[in-house]
């Protein structure tokens, strides 16, 4: 039995506590910027966590995950534009639209494997990108401004920074809890079995692709929620959120934090975005440092940050 008190768990606990207490710090210090920044981090961490579900546990390398960010965002944006401001309608629509998209592209993409899967998911996301840039009624390339955030009646006010932050954080923790339940369930065990040896799982009677597809749809749905939050956060949605480099960013966040660990993507997102922010304060050319850093991480720190911490815990 491994001790609960190891560096990995300590870091995770610190991150959770930090995220919970951040608005307090922001209020006391009067640093509003940090709250805005972490709202974005929390939202993208949810997207990264959903990607981790299919990459880390399902073994499906999706290079088109940003598409769901756009679909969730456009669901909110378009409904708001058409005068339907209630979050009780907007958010379920965002989730359902993402799930349907995932179902369609998943059932086609899962006929392929490996690098072909990476490429076909990329192709579908690019298609979604071009569809969005053709929506002339909804701003086309220029995007769509959302004048009013999703309203939840007297329940919460998303225009209030602190309340919105906690809504996002609740979604993140809820998402991670859900992923944890999925991973540890029978379904999740079959999924991980399929990842390690598909032939063997098929031989003992599991329909591998069906498990993969369900996982793919769940992941897409969670990412759609992240998209709805992101659109509310920026009060704006444009095709750019679906651009392929955004999918790349999400992949980087997952791998940086540690693929296949529950909190890895959260830590990866925090490190990636904070580093981006800090480096861009030091120099305009932050990517000059970030790029080689990624290369070094791939070369020398496999398993990401969580993998590194795990190495410390073991000895």
């Amino acid at each position: 039995m491994k001790s609960l008190l190891n560096p990995r768990n300590a870091v995770v606990a610190l991150v959770i506590a930090g995220l919970l207490l951040l608005p307090v710090y922001s209020a006391v210090s009067g640093n509003l910027f940090i709250l805005t920044m972490f709202t974005r981090i929390v939202i993208l961490a949810l997207a990264a966590a959903s990607l981790n579900l299919i990459m880390g546990y399902g073994g499906m390398m999706s290079f088109g995950h940003a598409a769901y960010l756009g679909i969730g965002g456009y669901a909110v944006g378009i409904l708001a534009f058409e005068g339907i401001g209630s979050g009780f309608i907007q958010w379920p629509v965002a989730l359902i639209a993402s799930a349907l998209f995932a179902l369609v592209i998943g059932s086609l993409s899962l006929r392929t494997r490996g690098v072909y899967f990476i490429m076909i998911t990329l192709a579908f996301a690019q298609m979604a990108y071009y569809v969005a840039s053709a929506l002339s009624r909804y701003g086309a390339d220029d995007g769509l401004t959302i004048y009013k955030r999703s309203s939840f009646g007297p329940l919460v006010d998303l225009s209030n920074r602190t309340q919105f932050y906690y809504v996002c954080l609740a979604c993140l923790f809820g998402g991670i809890y859900l992923i944890r339940r999925i991973v540890n369930s029978r379904f999740g065990l079959v999924l991980q079995g399929v990842r390690s040896n598909e032939q063997r799982m098929q031989a003992i009677g599991f329909n591998a692709n069906r498990y993969r597809l369900v996982c793919f749809v769940i992941s897409g749905t969670i990412c759609g929620l992240s998209g709805a939050l992101l659109a509310n956060n920026t009060d704006f949605v444009s095709p750019a959120v679906m651009y392929w480099t955004r999918s790349g960013d999400l992949m980087v966040m997952v791998i940086l934090g540690g693929m296949g660990s529950l909190f890895g993507p959260v830590i990866g997102t925090i490190v990636f975005l904070v580093l981006e922010e800090l480096l861009s304060q030091v120099t305009e050319y932050w990517a000059l440092i970030m790029g080689p850093l990624l290369l070094l991480i791939v070369l020398f720190a496999r398993g990401g940050i969580m993998g590194l911490l795990g190495r410390f815990s073991r000895g």
Binding site: M61, F63, I118, M251, V252, A287, L288, V298
Partner: peptide
């Protein structure tokens, strides 16, 4: 993918 994505940024 990750390493060469870093190179693109660079």
């Amino acid at each position: 993918v990750l390493a060469t994505f870093g190179l693109i940024l660079f």
